[in-house]
Design a binder for these strands. Structure first.
Length: 274
DNA sequence: ACCACAACCTGGCCGC
DNA sequence: TGCGGCCAGGTTGTGG
């Protein structure tokens, strides 16, 4: 159930096991997994290729092949990569794809089946609609405020829009609003540059911390899963009714844009719509 | 351009 | 034990 930090942690864990490897076999057990091109073409294009580079863009795992083409995976809600040192049968029916390498094997597991893969000659058109990477320099407080300027929707909901900023999911949107001391229901366009700065800072701090602590879900590589410690540090996410760690007030849960949202009614300021 | 809402899927948990 | 209802960390498409 990955957001940016989860994907980043997994990519870092997988990179040394994938870069330089040759893809010798591709088994697709659910045709709908492949968004483009067709399943047959997808398999043909990948087989025999060497993996040049493994990257992340937003929540997308981006694999560059030795012929300059690209293999992209979006894990959506429940997608999961597992690396095995030696080939082995799929663990269960939720393993939707198996990639046999010249050394090791990669299994893609996705119970809810929302995840998708693409093979493309050029990755740019697929990635172009994404907003800036929140941990890179292109992401600025001023830019964030500008993208918020016409949006009367709640700031927390707008943070989840991949076109505004890439990779921010439901956990980190709530956590960032808490850290910025902003009520998640505040209309995005009400944010002045001061609030935008606070949110920008808070979002980056929360994402960095999650990456450093191993995010919330540990990647499984060769049967070993590191500890995922960020989960223990949630200030508000999933803590409805619990005491705020700052002021002791009871954390509230509300639904914004069909998604659960958590906040502290005392620490987080609501800017009124004019 | 923005917004609200349905759709895509399965599994886990809770209460009865 | 079974069953209904609700929940789940994401995105896209549709229609207003």
């Amino acid at each position: 159930m990955p957001e940016l930090p989860e994907v980043e942690v997994w990519v870092r864990a997988l990179r040394p096991r994938l870069e330089g490897r040759r893809i010798e076999g591709v088994t697709i057990r659910r045709n709908k997994l492949i968004a483009a091109p067709g399943v047959r073409t997808f398999r043909t294009r990948l087989r025999g290729r060497r993996i040049r580079r493994v990257r992340r863009r937003g929540k997308v795992i981006w694999v560059e092949l030795d012929d300059g083409a690209h293999w992209l995976t979006h894990l959506r809600m429940t997608g999961w990569w597992r690396h095995h040192a030696a080939p082995q049968p799929p663990a269960d029916r939720h393993v939707l794809a198996v990639f046999t390498l010249d050394k090791g094997q990669l299994h893609y597991r996705d119970p809810r089946r929302f995840g998708r893969m693409w093979w493309v000659r050029d990755a740019a058109p697929l990635l172009a609609p994404l907003g800036p990477e929140p941990l890179e320099r292109a992401f600025t407080a001023a830019g964030l405020q500008k993208r918020f300027a016409r949006r009367r929707a709640a700031v927390k909901q707008v943070l989840l829009d991949p076109a505004v900023v890439a990779g921010v999911g439901n956990i980190y949107a709530s956590e960032a609003c808490f850290r910025a001391r902003l009520d998640p229901r505040t209309p995005a366009r009400r944010l002045g540059i001061e609030e935008a700065r606070r949110l920008h800072r808070a979002l980056r701090a929360v994402l960095r911390r999650a990456i450093r602590l191993g995010s919330t879900v540990a990647p499984v590589v060769d049967g070993y899963a590191a500890r995922a410690r960020f989960r223990d540090e949630f200030a508000v996410y999933g803590r409805a009714g619990d005491a705020c760690r700052t002021c002791g007030a009871a954390i509230r849960r509300v639904v914004i844009g069909q998604r659960s949202t958590f906040y502290c009614p005392r620490c987080q300021e609501l800017l009124q719509e004019r």
